[in-house]
Computed example of a mutant assay.
Amino acid sequence: MSDEEEHFEGPGSLTGTFQQQAGNIRKNGFIVIQNRPCKVVKVSASETGNYGHGQCHFTAIDIFTRERFEDTVPSSHNCDVPYVKRTDYQLIDISEDGYVSLLTESGRTKDNLKLPTDETLAGQVCMDGIKEGFDEGKDLVVTVMSAMGEEQICAFKDVGPK
């Protein structure tokens, strides 16, 4: 199995996750809500009440779709937390159908990713920005975020002329 096909098998209940106590998950951390890897944007905790457990209320954003999720979990219970990995790749080519060819550290090519097209991602990664920079001859490096078997280009930077 190559490093591009790396899958994490952690002790969590979902592939690519590990368990962490809800009371230990903080803002800007990660959590799985409704089987989606999310970044926590707000955590509020309540004190122990009639039911014997303090509660953690999480507001989180899906790291791939930008969809908003909320969940309330007893603070002493375990939650699934995704392994999130960011990897930089040299952009080699962009095909007509939007697939990119990326150069890995080992010198191989990675050809299974498309430029992001979702308009909700336009503020973070503009497909046109990557394509325009590439067409202008800029030397671009793209950052790919991967979690729970999904991958997506999440950022890019110009590292100089080709």
Rank of each mutant, 00 (worst) to 15 (best):
N78C: 09
I31F: 01
I94M: 13
T65W: 10
T48A: 02
H53R: 11
T117K: 13
T72Y: 04
D93I: 09
Q19Y: 01
I92A: 09
N28V: 01
I33N: 01
F30G: 02
I33D: 01
P74F: 08
H53W: 05
K42H: 09
I33H: 01
G107F: 12
G107Q: 10
V81D: 10
L91V: 13
S101C: 14
S44I: 02
R108A: 15
G16I: 05
L91S: 09
Q55A: 03
F64S: 06
P37K: 01
T117E: 11
Q55K: 13
R36T: 07
Q20D: 00
Q21D: 00
P37S: 04
A22G: 00
D62F: 09
H53A: 13
K42P: 00
L115T: 06
S76V: 12
I33P: 02
V84C: 09
C56I: 08
L91A: 09
P37C: 05
E47F: 01
A45Y: 02
C38V: 11
P74Q: 05
C56K: 08
N50M: 09
D62H: 08
H53K: 12
C79L: 03
T48K: 11
G49S: 03
K114Y: 11
V100W: 04
G23E: 03
D93Y: 14
D111S: 14
Y83T: 07
N24K: 09
V81L: 10
V41T: 13
N35Q: 08
P82A: 12
R86M: 15
D62I: 10
T117C: 07
G16H: 01
P116R: 07
S95W: 05
D111T: 15
N50C: 06
K42T: 07
L102M: 07
N50W: 03
A60L: 07
E96A: 13
A45Q: 12
A22D: 02
Y99H: 12
A22T: 01
D97I: 13
P74E: 10
T59I: 11
G29N: 12
A60K: 07
